[in-house]
């Protein structure tokens, strides 16, 4: 029984780390602009798909292909901000969210045209020999996902709390006009926020692709799960988003293991609803006061 639960927990943390990375991307853009970027899942998919295309199709070594694809996805993120979000500056938050949904459909269509409907796999970074912890097992790639997620999360934490640019982005989210008045280049900060989200998304995609495979529509479900995780943790709080991701992964895995695998998604969503009912701003979100 103990071994079983250990396995459920390990599985939950691996899956949760993926959700956490996607959720973190949501939280960063939300932090900077109050916009929920629904093309976050597509960043994840693009990161994985373009890495595979570059390494398998063009014969680049995996690390180089990954680096190129991260750079490409960052460009996509910047272009999304510059050409789709920025021109709608005066629009309401809801309108901007709808623009991001449109962008996600566009990116999915583009991936479909470029790479077709096939499912693609990626080689594991350091082999597929499972590591044993008691009776439970773990793939080296799972450690890559967890390790990668930890490094990125700490990096984001440092960026927002200890660098001028990070603090400037937070300032923009608090009060755009005031930030502008004290000399912060608001447009530039928005670009940085989108670029950073795209960077996180694409890295998440590359880290998990060897385990999960990928296809042109893989971003839809990941985006949805990452969004749920961000809501669960508290939308404006990057560390809350990470906690929400890990929690959602654990809930799903334990629900599947101990209750019923058929109802695990339902159980996850019921818990999400309960949290929203009792704590509308999420588990770790600050209760929001209406800004006047």
């Amino acid at each position: 029984m103990f071994d079983q639960i250990l396995q459920f927990i390990l599985t939950g943390i691996t899956v949760g780390a993926t959700y956490a990375l996607v959720a973190l991307g949501f939280a960063i853009i939300y932090n900077a602009s109050d916009v929920v970027n629904f093309s976050q899942g597509e960043f994840v998919m693009l990161g994985a798909m373009s890495t595979i295309a570059l390494s398998a199709g063009n014969g680049l070594p995996l690390w180089l292909a990954a680096a190129c694809s991260v750079a490409m996805v960052i460009c996509v993120g910047l272009m999304l901000q510059r050409f789709a979000i920025a021109p709608a500056r005066g629009a309401s938050v809801v309108t901007t969210i709808i623009i991001t949904i449109g962008a996600s459909i566009f990116l999915r269509g583009l991936a479909l045209l470029l790479w077709g409907k096939d499912i693609f796999g990626m080689p594991h970074f350091s082999g597929e020999v499972p590591l044993r912890i008691g009776e439970a097992t773990l793939l080296p790639q799972n450690l890559w996902v967890m390790g990668g997620a930890s490094v990125l999360v700490l990096g984001v934490h440092y960026f927002f709390n200890h660098t001028t640019h990070g603090k400037a982005i937070l300032a923009c989210s608090c009060n755009r006009t005031a930030a502008h008045l004290v000399g912060i280049n608001v447009g530039m900060m928005m670009l940085i926020a989108y670029g950073l989200s795209a960077l996180l998304g694409s890295l998440a995609g590359i880290l998990v692709a060897p385990i999960t495979f990928t296809s042109y529509d893989a971003g839809v479900m990941l985006g949805l799960k990452g969004f749920s995780a961000a809501i669960l943790g508290g939308m404006g709080n990057p560390m809350g988003a990470v906690a929400g991701g890990l929690l959602l992964g654990l809930i799903e895995s334990l629900a599947a293991g101990l209750i019923s695998s058929g109802y695990k998604d339902a159980i996850g969503f019921v818990i999400l609803l309960l949290v929203l009912f009792f704590r509308p701003s999420g588990l770790f979100g600050k209760a929001s006061a209406e800004r006047v």
Partner: peptide, 11 residues
């Protein structure tokens, strides 16, 4: 779209 079935398989 699930990405890991080790829980079900452990059972």
């Amino acid at each position: 779209q699930d990405t890991d079935m080790t829980t079900q398989l452990t059972k």
